[in-house]
């Protein structure tokens, strides 16, 4: 069964909130995806629907061509770790959490789990509640990775981890993704550190999917146009402007989309400076409150 994720016009409402608003996308699988969005943008909601944690209100979700909600054939191949994970209950010992995972998760790999426990130096005999936030997150990561599920999702699972441990996490994710074809979705709002891992990027804002693009294309598709305010305005007219900054007579406009050679020549002739735009900037501008796009 291939793990193609097909989301069509997906809407999720609860507590009078529209958490997801007609989201449509197709994830072909075997890749590392970055799901970006500010807090409350719908990342957790989308992942929760994909993992069958929640039933969607409208639209359609299929994984490997099958409906997801309460369908063991799909959910047994999907693992979502929200924060430090729903399988890590405070009252339980770390060893019990792992033992229960081994019993309940059909694809569980105990040897790999033991390896990861060592890697993140987790104490087996302590209760989850007595662990630091970082250690709890690490335990969630162990569960996600050792589940060896074809679709594995980590929702802000790096929270509380120090930088060296985060890098261990990234390295483990990368090694896993290369060792066997697994679709991995990492949701985050801290982009700079992880973005090189992504093959494709999805950006959610206010429950809507505002962008789904290959990471490399995205890196090439933004551009900061800087120069005299009037000249900049004339140049960006008709282009998709994500945001603008102004200092005196100087203005900088973030343009989304590739400029062709003629446009670049025109900019240079008009005395405008064309600079690259970082993914992080692109993200910030795409998800700015009150963004006209």
């Amino acid at each position: 069964m291939s793990m193609v994720v097909e989301v069509d016009q997906l809407t999720l409402r609860y507590h009078d909130v529209t958490a997801l608003d007609e989201v449509s996308c197709t994830l072909t699988g075997g890749k590392i995806y970055g799901l970006l969005g500010r807090n409350g943008s719908g990342k957790t909601s989308l992942l929760s629907v994909l993992a069958g944690y929640r039933e969607h209100t409208d639209g359609q979700v299929r994984i490997g061509g099958l409906p997801v909600f309460d369908n063991a054939e799909v959910t047994s191949r999907v693992c979502l770790v929200r924060g430090s994970g729903d399988a890590t209950q405070n009252s339980l010992k770390v060893a019990d959490v792992l033992e229960f995972a081994a019993i309940l998760r059909t694809s569980w790999d105990s040897d790999y789990a033991a390896e990861l426990v060592e890697l993140f130096s987790l104490p087996l005999n302590k209760t989850v509640g007595s662990l630091s936030h970082g250690r709890r997150s690490a335990l969630g990561i162990v569960i996600g990775l050792a589940s060896r599920t074809p679709l594995t999702m980590f929702d802000e699972s790096y929270l509380g981890l120090d930088a060296p441990t985060r890098y261990k996490f990234y390295d483990a994710v990368l090694a896993e993704a290369m060792a066997q074809p697994r679709t991995i979705i990492l949701s985050t709002h801290l982009i700079e550190e992880v973005s090189a891992l992504f093959e494709e990027v999805l950006i959610l804002d206010d429950g809507k999917l505002v962008l789904h693009e290959e990471a490399e294309t995205l890196r090439a598709s933004g551009c900061a146009v800087t120069g005299d305010a009037e000249v900049v305005d004339r140049f960006v007219d008709g282009l998709r402007v994500l945001g603008e900054k102004r200092l005196g007579r100087t203005k900088s406009a973030m343009v989304y989309g590739d400029l062709d050679a003629e446009q670049r020549a025109g900019a240079s002739a008009a005395g405008l400076d064309l600079g690259p735009l970082a993914l992080q900037d692109l993200f910030v501008h795409l998800t700015e409150p009150g963004d006209p796009s």
């Binding site: 890098y167 990234y170 990368l174 090694a175 993704a177 290369m178 090189a196 891992l197």
Partner: peptide
């Protein structure tokens, strides 16, 4: 490709490209 990707923490598809 895999070594390069792991060493620099880059998506292997990017390295392959």
């Amino acid at each position: 490709t895999t070594k390069y990707a792991a060493f620099h923490r880059i998506n292997p598809a990017t390295v392959a490209k």
